[in-house]
């Protein structure tokens, strides 16, 4: 174990935000889910007891008849905002006094940095470059991530869970988002920071970054395994495989959409456009973990090879 190097990476001032994320994200996830489960218990009680559902104020927060449901912004909200501003200022002051912003040598186009890393919040995209060609990882997928995020409100046909934490009433939506945000996006940021070394090679935490390291791994393409050599053959074969993957994934998600009676009820509320768009975004999202797996387990680089693009 090369503890010195691990410490060097973790304590690098520009990596402090990622180390902070390692603590902040689990904390806030816990914080949210604790409230979600508390609300779920209340929902369970109310569903079991319709009489109680008629009279209960339907929040876990205490409330008694006669209490105001709304309070004055001045002072109750403004003092919180003022306090938050002071605390954030203090944190920033201490952070800025103790840690210096990095400044390397003057820019030099003839001296390549190795590893040349993007800013930490774009490391997810840089990590995707390993699994996809630049036009996919750098342009198409980021665009789809943004469009997909913006489309969420129009694709989610579930009217429950509007304005309160819950897990029980929105299992599919929450699991999909947590998978995309925590499992895919944040873990790729963390891999990009802690695991990727010189040459963007995989170094386990604690493994010394060796600038002369060579990895003799021959990446294969899926058609090679089936001994398909002609260009049209590869194109047609890839199209078939991608088509099969799409059908398989679509079936899988359709099974999830119709898994429970509640899911089926939401499914019935969806229009055809909503259903098809949601399927499309989910299937494209799943290409990332699938490509990560076939790359890391079977060293397969491309599935679909055409003269114009490779996937």
């Amino acid at each position: 174990m090369d503890w010195a190097q691990l410490w060097e990476i973790a304590s690098e001032p520009d990596n402090v935000p990622i180390v902070a994320l390692l603590f902040l994200v689990p904390f806030y996830t816990f914080y949210a889910f604790r409230q979600a489960f508390a609300n779920d218990r209340l929902i369970g009680q109310l569903e079991a007891n319709p009489a109680m559902a008629k009279t209960h104020h339907r929040k876990v927060q205490p409330w008694k008849p006669g209490w105001d449901r709304e309070i004055h912004v001045w002072p109750f909200l403004l003092r919180m905002e003022f306090l938050a501003a002071i605390i954030v200022t203090l944190i920033l002051m201490i952070w800025s006094i103790t840690l210096n912003a990095p400044l390397e040598e003057p820019s030099n186009p003839t001296l390549t940095m190795n590893p040349a890393k993007a800013p930490w919040y774009f490391l997810g995209l840089q990590e995707m470059l390993v699994y996809f060609d630049p036009w996919m990882a750098g342009v198409v997928l980021p665009t789809l991530i943004l469009v997909g995020l913006m489309a969420i409100p129009y694709l989610d046909a579930n009217p429950l869970g509007n304005g309160y934490y819950t897990f029980k009433q929105r299992k599919f939506a929450i699991m999909a988002f947590v998978f995309g945000f925590l499992v895919l996006w944040l873990s790729m940021v963390i891999i990009g920071t802690f695991i990727r070394g010189p040459g963007w090679m995989w170094f386990w935490p604690g493994q010394t970054w060796d600038h002369n390291r060579l990895i003799f791994e021959a990446n294969r393409d899926l058609p090679d395994i089936f001994h398909i050599t002609s260009a049209p053959g590869k194109g047609i074969f890839g199209a078939i495989v991608v088509g099969l993957y799409t059908i398989l994934m679509a079936t899988f998600f359709h099974k999830l959409f119709t898994l429970t009676p509640f899911n089926r009820r939401i499914y019935k509320r969806m229009s055809l456009i909503q259903y098809v768009t949601l399927q499309l975004f989910l299937i494209i999202m799943m290409t990332l973990p699938v490509k990560i797996l076939i790359r890391q387990l079977f060293r397969i680089k491309y599935v679909w090879i055409t003269p114009w693009f490779n996937i």
């Binding site: 820019s107 940095m113 750098g138 342009v139 198409v140």
Partner: peptide
């Protein structure tokens, strides 16, 4: 500095591969 220069080089190199609009893109 080197940090910014290479980060932006890596970042904007992806734009080469923009489909239709980049010279290395599909």
């Amino acid at each position: 500095d080197q940090l910014g220069f290479w980060a932006v080089t890596v970042g904007t190199n992806m734009a080469r591969a923009t489909p239709l609009l980049g010279h290395e893109g599909p």
